[in-house]
Simulated assay, not measured.
Amino acid sequence: MRQISLADKLIMLADNSLKTLAGGYQTSNRVKPASQSGQQTEELTAEQAKHSAGLMRINHCGEVCAQALYQGQALTARLPEVRDKMEQAAIEENDHLDWCAERLQQLDSRVSLLNPLWYLGSFSIGAVAGAIGDKWSLGFVAETEHQVVRHLDDHLQKLPEKDSQSRAILMQMREDELQHATNAIAAGGAELPGPVKGVMQLMSKVMTSTVYYI
């Protein structure tokens, strides 16, 4: 088999980046959560739709960051099996990107204009984490996913009661994120130091407070 060169990796990286930000990414054949929620769609008021859109824009941006994180780690991961896990997780996260983007369109809204900025920052963090060592890279994934789950729990409380479609999406995303965290720990992920977790939480607050509007 032909060995993948650095140039090949960079081309693949550029392709993945463009697909993450502009669309065209590969998704699974799973039935979309909103399609199987089993609940009748109810009309949202303009204010409710605007609020749901703000929350779903945050979740979409979070998935952009997750993609960037996984792609950065896969680029610098040392063990092939760890790199494979990162790439598989990135494919599974594409479903979340697709679901959130589609729901934003249904709410007559758009994705965040800040997505490229957050992608770049998350990719850089992922690449550094992968270069430091696989156990820390996996630990970073686990902590990221746990923080995402906490955000999803918060958003499930804040969503308008009538917005059953967005709720179904977030519930499935929550289940997937928990599984990714569990897989990362089982693969040897180390628990991150408290100060690192604190910085991650601070960055998350900055992202959520800006992307809700922009």
Rank of each mutant, 00 (worst) to 15 (best):
residue 13 L to C: 05
residue 145 E to S: 06
residue 50 K to I: 04
residue 185 I to S: 02
residue 75 L to M: 12
residue 110 R to Y: 12
residue 59 N to P: 00
residue 29 N to W: 06
residue 200 M to S: 07
residue 33 P to R: 04
residue 6 L to M: 11
residue 179 Q to T: 11
residue 139 G to H: 02
residue 49 A to R: 15
residue 18 L to F: 09
residue 44 L to T: 08
residue 142 A to Q: 10
residue 18 L to I: 14
residue 54 G to V: 05
residue 110 R to K: 14
residue 26 Q to Y: 11
residue 153 D to K: 11
residue 81 E to R: 14
residue 184 A to M: 09
residue 39 Q to T: 07
residue 186 A to Y: 13
residue 10 L to N: 10
residue 179 Q to L: 12
residue 180 H to N: 02
residue 142 A to P: 06
residue 156 L to I: 06
residue 132 I to R: 12
residue 34 A to F: 07
residue 98 D to C: 11
residue 59 N to A: 07
residue 101 A to R: 13
residue 167 R to W: 12
residue 98 D to K: 14
residue 1 M to C: 08
residue 81 E to T: 11
residue 139 G to I: 04
residue 121 G to P: 10
residue 160 P to I: 09
residue 93 E to C: 02
residue 171 M to W: 07
residue 120 L to D: 04
residue 79 L to G: 03
residue 151 H to V: 08
residue 41 T to C: 02
residue 59 N to W: 07
residue 32 K to Y: 06
residue 13 L to M: 14
residue 48 Q to E: 14
residue 125 I to R: 11
residue 156 L to H: 05
residue 18 L to M: 13
residue 61 C to D: 07
residue 28 S to H: 03
residue 54 G to Y: 02
residue 57 R to C: 05
residue 71 Q to L: 11
residue 76 T to A: 06
residue 83 R to M: 01
residue 136 W to L: 15
residue 136 W to N: 11
residue 82 V to E: 04
residue 100 C to G: 05
residue 14 A to L: 12
residue 183 N to A: 15
residue 28 S to T: 13
residue 47 E to V: 13
residue 27 T to K: 14
residue 96 H to R: 05
residue 84 D to Q: 15
residue 63 E to M: 08
residue 124 S to E: 05
residue 87 E to H: 02
residue 204 S to I: 04
residue 71 Q to E: 13
residue 160 P to Y: 09
residue 165 Q to A: 13
residue 25 Y to N: 09
residue 100 C to E: 04
